[in-house]
Design a binder for these strands. Structure first.
Length: 321
DNA sequence: ACATGTGTTGAT
DNA sequence: TCAACACATGTG
């Protein structure tokens, strides 16, 4: 029997890995409108990587594939739990097309072998040929050079490192130009900004434990699942102020604004909003996982999910904000 | 399997 | 700085 995921919950890489849209959606999620673990990239096997927002399972959003098993996603779930928002978005960005290797966090940026500076380059634009964009002291500068070239040559839909708004109006992202050891320093910063996974992971219901298959004999799954289900103390979780956080990440500023203020042709924003609707109180109540699939996901029962879901309401979110 | 686009490497 | 190859990833 074929598993069905509502089409409006499915976003292919092509759509999702458009940073502005992706980040906007993720921000909504990460800003406590939904717990961090509700977004998961799925490794799609032969069909390629897909990032799907869809089915809630074990407090995590999964997109089901007929051949998928829960184990397929344990890696992603763990990854999301162990990474800060910034780090995770970086990994997502890196996974986008053609951007899978290398040392730089940014698209179009590579460390030059000669002088060690950061070289920006964009390939196969306007006809063919590569475009050398120069070398820079910092990754960020090179990344911006790439962004601008990308926008110029590929239009407003270009996949960019930073939010396109930064290039549309006066406010360029305030790049903290540090000395040499950028990477390390940034990593430190990231750690400081780390969103504790537990502080976000509030949807977990105790009774879900019984729902889960705890006796698969697979250690990895078990640890992952139990991690997810670790009871969370909502009250003492550190409230993350989204605004505060924005200060440190220029590229994710005014994402939502960008959607309304910038006319972006053929980007359908409905996808994003439709997706977000999922995380509305009502939306969740009505999203019956049983109707989402014709059979339990990966053989794991989801029968309790809908009742559990109802407890994941704005209460959880507002308590944080 | 093929197309695409970026990382890497070497030459100039 | 330029050019070309390597290769991961998406797509039909």
């Amino acid at each position: 029997m074929k598993l069905q995921t509502p089409s409006h919950l499915k976003l292919s890489l092509k759509n999702v890995f458009e940073p502005r849209k992706l980040i906007s959606m993720l921000l909504k999620i990460l800003n406590q409108e939904a717990p961090f673990t509700e977004v998961s990239p799925g490794i799609g096997g032969p069909g390629g990587t897909k990032l799907i927002f869809g089915t809630r399972l074990h407090g995590t959003t999964f997109r089901a594939r007929e051949e998928d098993k829960l184990e397929t996603y344990t890696k992603e779930v763990e990854e999301m739990e162990n990474l800060s928002k910034e780090e995770y978005l970086t990994t997502l960005r890196r996974r986008s097309s053609g951007f899978s290797r290398g040392v730089s966090k940014y698209r179009g940026v590579a460390r030059h072998h000669h002088n060690g500076r950061w070289e920006a380059r964009i390939g196969r634009v306007s006809g063919n040929k590569y475009l050398y964009l120069g070398t820079y002291d910092t990754q960020e500068e090179a990344a911006m050079a790439y962004d601008m070239a990308a926008i110029e040559h590929r239009g407003p839909n270009a996949v960019t490192n930073f939010d396109i708004n930064n290039y549309m109006d006066k406010n360029m992202p305030k790049i903290e130009v540090k000395e040499e050891e950028e990477e390390e320093e940034e990593d430190v910063e990231m750690k400081q900004e780390l969103i504790t996974p537990n502080s976000l992971n509030k949807v977990v219901q105790p009774d879900e434990n019984e729902t889960h298959n705890h006796h698969q004999g697979d250690n990895q799954i078990e640890t992952s699942v139990s991690k997810l289900e670790k009871p969370i103390n909502t009250s003492d979780s550190q409230a993350m102020d989204p605004i505060e956080e924005h200060k440190h990440y220029p590229w994710d500023l005014c994402l939502d604004n960008s959607f309304s203020s910038i006319p972006i042709p053929d980007i359908s924003l409905e996808e994003a909003s439709e997706f977000l609707r999922l995380f509305d109180d009502n939306g969740f109540e009505e999203l019956d996982i049983e109707f989402t699939f014709d059979e339990p996901f990966g053989g794991v029962s989801t029968s309790h999910s809908s009742s559990s879901l109802s407890t994941m309401t704005s209460d959880d979110c507002s308590s944080i904000n």
